[in-house]
Amino acid sequence: MLEMNNITKVFNAGTPNEKTALEDFSLKVSDGDFITVIGANGAGKSTLFGAIAGDYIPDRGSIILNNKNVTLQPSYVRARVIGRLFQDPMRGTAPGMTIEENLSLAAGSGGWLGSITKADRERFIEKLSPLGMGLEYRMTQPVGLLSGGQRQALTLMMATMNKPEILLLDEHTAALDPATAEIVLKLTKEIVERDKITCLMVTHNMQSALDLGNRTIMMDRGKVIYDVSGDERKGLTVPDLLNKFKEAAGAALDNDRMLLTK
């Protein structure tokens, strides 16, 4: 279980560019939750993920992961239990290294001086075959030769290879073409459901925010302004969501990208 208590994060404090990205933000995520996160640009969605993953240490508040206070833990330590995908498909993989070398680093088995074994290779092929992208035949090719969609699918495999406590998806299909985005989204759904991974997903697509997962939170100016799950969420439509935003934020949602993809 993930618990965020009264998190505040201010960037460039004391300068004209001061920006409060998260303000007294609290959130409780139960095991097995699949939460979709929506909100306009600058609402604090990415900062929220950065705080969970350890990129930013919050100015105030605490983050409890599985009853352990991880607020000050460096990001690479937290990465043991947190999987993460970014919008940029290039961020999750090392382009100059081969597919199997990337997978091997993510798998992290065998100790510092261990190298890729036959069993590892079989396991990697087993992971990649269901993608239907033919990656299992290209294990010794550099990842830099793959398309954005293939790299993102590979990153997804790497992030979920050892089941994470939390999977953070930061608009991970936004930079892909619509057909590829759909494939990657479908894959995500399958893996998250199959392994029962607790997951938070930022999306600008209002429809998929409602279609996917069991809970949706709407953010504005560093706060949760609407949190919906269960029966109330089932009947919800995109226009309902837009109205909720207007009600809660006191202004219409003026995000072109969001309106376009409703």
Binding site: G92, G96, E101, A106, G108, L113, G114
Partner: peptide, 27 residues
């Protein structure tokens, strides 16, 4: 040999994509 071990791979990845090294739980 060394550059094919996990430590060697991590060193190569550091020059390639340090973000990815961190997400593999390596400092």
């Amino acid at each position: 040999f060394f550059l094919k071990t996990r430590l060697g791979l991590a060193i190569r990845a550091t020059g390639n994509n340090p973000d990815m090294v961190r997400s593999s739980s390596i400092n």
